[in-house]
């Protein structure tokens, strides 16, 4: 048998042993996953970001403007000492400030205006079902938004609308839950298929 299959099979059983209860074998496999994943991300980040985007362009191609993010990056290490910990705030300031500046137009465009446009467009159509479905979406959207509107008490029309909003939210949570369970179960079936056919050769 392929050594890779043996290793993968043993590790799969080690993780599944958690179903019996928390045990040393599971803990060992879990910490191995943490270590290996971190090592993998470290190598990929070093190769694809630090070498490709920073060190090679800066020191080989002489793109000296990269010294600015390099210094901000080095400031992050300031966190390890009390007297230099304030330096990491400068790096965070660049990330958070630029992130906030990008988020305003991007969020307004993609998350708000585009969603509104798409909702209104759904009402257009030539069949009864299309128009009805579009109206359901409009009603669902307004009632959901009224549920999240806390500047007015949920009484009268507002209260009824908010209650309908909770029904739509429950439909959303229910379907999302259903699809999440399905994806997890399909992953489990994949692991069992690997264990029973590739590793243990019990099935074809």
């Amino acid at each position: 048998m392929d050594p890779g299959t043996i290793v993968a099979g043993i590790l799969t059983i080690a993780i599944l042993s958690f179903l019996y209860g928390d045990n040393p074998v599971y803990k060992m496999a879990e910490t191995l996953l943490v270590g290996v994943s971190m090592g993998y991300v470290l190598v990929i980040t070093w190769t694809n970001t630090l070498m490709a985007v920073l060190f090679k362009p800066l020191f080989v191609e002489s793109e000296f403007w990269l010294i600015i993010p390099f210094i901000f990056g080095l400031f992050m290490f300031g966190r390890f000492h009390k007297s230099t910990s304030f330096l990491s705030r400068y790096s965070m300031a660049v990330l958070i400030g630029s992130g906030a500046g990008v988020a305003i137009p991007a969020m307004l465009g993609a998350r708000t205006l585009r969603q509104m446009t798409a909702t209104v467009e759904m009402v257009q159509g030539d069949s009864f079902l299309t128009i009805f479905s579009g109206l359901v979406v409009v009603a669902g959207l307004f009632s959901t938004l009224s549920y999240f509107y806390f500047s007015r008490e949920h009484e009268g029309i507002m209260g009824r609308s908010a209650r309908v909003g909770t029904y739509f939210l429950m439909i959303f949570f229910g379907t999302t839950f259903g699809y999440t369970v399905m994806s997890r179960v399909s992953t489990f079936i994949g692991r069992m298929d690997f264990l029973l056919s590739d590793f243990l050769h019990l099935t074809n």
């Binding site: 906030a100 500046g101 708000t112 969603q115 669902g140 959207l141 909003g165």
Partner: peptide
């Protein structure tokens, strides 16, 4: 999935969008 569920999803997305804009303004 495509209509009643999506309408609530859109409501949440719009809420997230408006919340992000407000938080970003507060940060800046």
């Amino acid at each position: 999935r495509s209509y009643p569920s999506m309408s609530a999803r859109r409501g949440i997305l719009i809420g997230i969008g408006l919340g992000s804009v407000t938080t970003s303004l507060r940060v800046i």
